[in-house]
Design a protein around this nucleic acid. Structure first.
Lengths: 168, 168
DNA sequence: GCCCAACGACTGCTTGAGCAAATATAACCG
DNA sequence: CGGTTATATTTGCTCAAGCAGTCGTTGGGC
């Protein structure tokens, strides 16, 4: 069957998607043990790595895969669960911060080691250092090309822009 | 800021996720031009690459990222849009096939060239052959480890099992 | 100072997906 | 053959997410 679907380009994408799906499933399973969904984990992680463990709602939306209304609702749920709080932005009354609570930090601390272990076990630990470096190098180059404004990445640039509303 | 989030394992996953998100977005944009969602494209592709351009609902669910009820509803929509039809399985009246219609095949033929062009442009064409081979090799090894039953891959084995209900 | 455009967060509505239950059929066992 | 169990699909319910519209706030032009 010499059809189009054996095209190496299709195969390449299939591979990427399978790896993504496989890892996502492993992550979701481990996160669920700690009562977090993937989205909630992403949100709390973005906040925890930001100065003051907080971010304005809009900036949080920009750093995650969510729309602003999506962020409103995730933060609603996580606030109800005691992982986050909202805090007013002192110099712009339109804005508000989402802040990680102590309970939220504790939850994250409980969750992270297992998360790292899973990455190690199923991803980075599967390859010898040279092969891993080659893989990451390839991914980096594709990422730089396809870069949709660093949708899910290390947006240090944007983070630097974001603290013009710093309450400190 | 020497925090946990600079861990190379986190970075590696972030890279993979960014590439996935970036490519998915490009794909979705192109598919939308042809009136298909990503899920619909996956469904019609899986069917079109199967013998007779058809698959039982359950097998279709197994080959996609959907549950069986999810498949029921996508097929509902695509049947309403004239891209697919249901056909009874002659020797098992519980089963039914989803079959690609002529219109569906036409739609797919219109869509595929652009899809391949996008893969080429943003993914495979970004790397020289050796780097691409290294990337794919790494992905393949991770895939083989994390393999959740070949969720989105070349499930030739399962396809071979599936035609015990062949109407031909 | 006043007006208007831009902005930030939130809410109503719609959509797509999964789980669990319902239904119909098949297979097996005695 | 009759009954139980397993399988294939569909349907009711719930939930998460996006879009578009709303409301309050801000800032710039005059």
């Amino acid at each position: 069957m010499t059809n189009v679907f054996d095209d190496p380009r299709i195969t390449a994408v299939g591979l990427l998607y399978e790896v993504h799906a496989g890892l996502s499933a492993r992550f979701a399973a481990q996160l669920e043990e700690h009562g977090l969904s993937s989205v909630e984990f992403e949100v709390i992680t973005r906040l925890a790595r930001s100065p003051g463990n907080q971010l304005r709602m809009t900036d949080l939306a920009a750093q995650t895969s969510l729309s602003t209304s999506g962020v409103t609702r995730v933060v609603d749920r996580m606030e109800r669960d005691g992982l986050l709080t909202r805090r007013a932005c002192p110099n712009d009354r339109r804005s508000s911060y989402a802040v990680v609570t102590a309970a939220g930090m504790r939850r994250l601390d409980e969750t992270l080691p297992g998360h790292l272990r899973i990455i190690e076990q199923w991803f980075t630990g599967q390859l010898d250092p040279a092969a891993l470096a080659a893989l990451l190098d390839g991914l980096r180059r594709v990422r730089d090309a396809v870069h949709p404004g660093a949708t899910a990445g290390s947006t240090d640039q944007e983070a630097a822009d974001a603290d013009d509303c710093d309450p400190a």
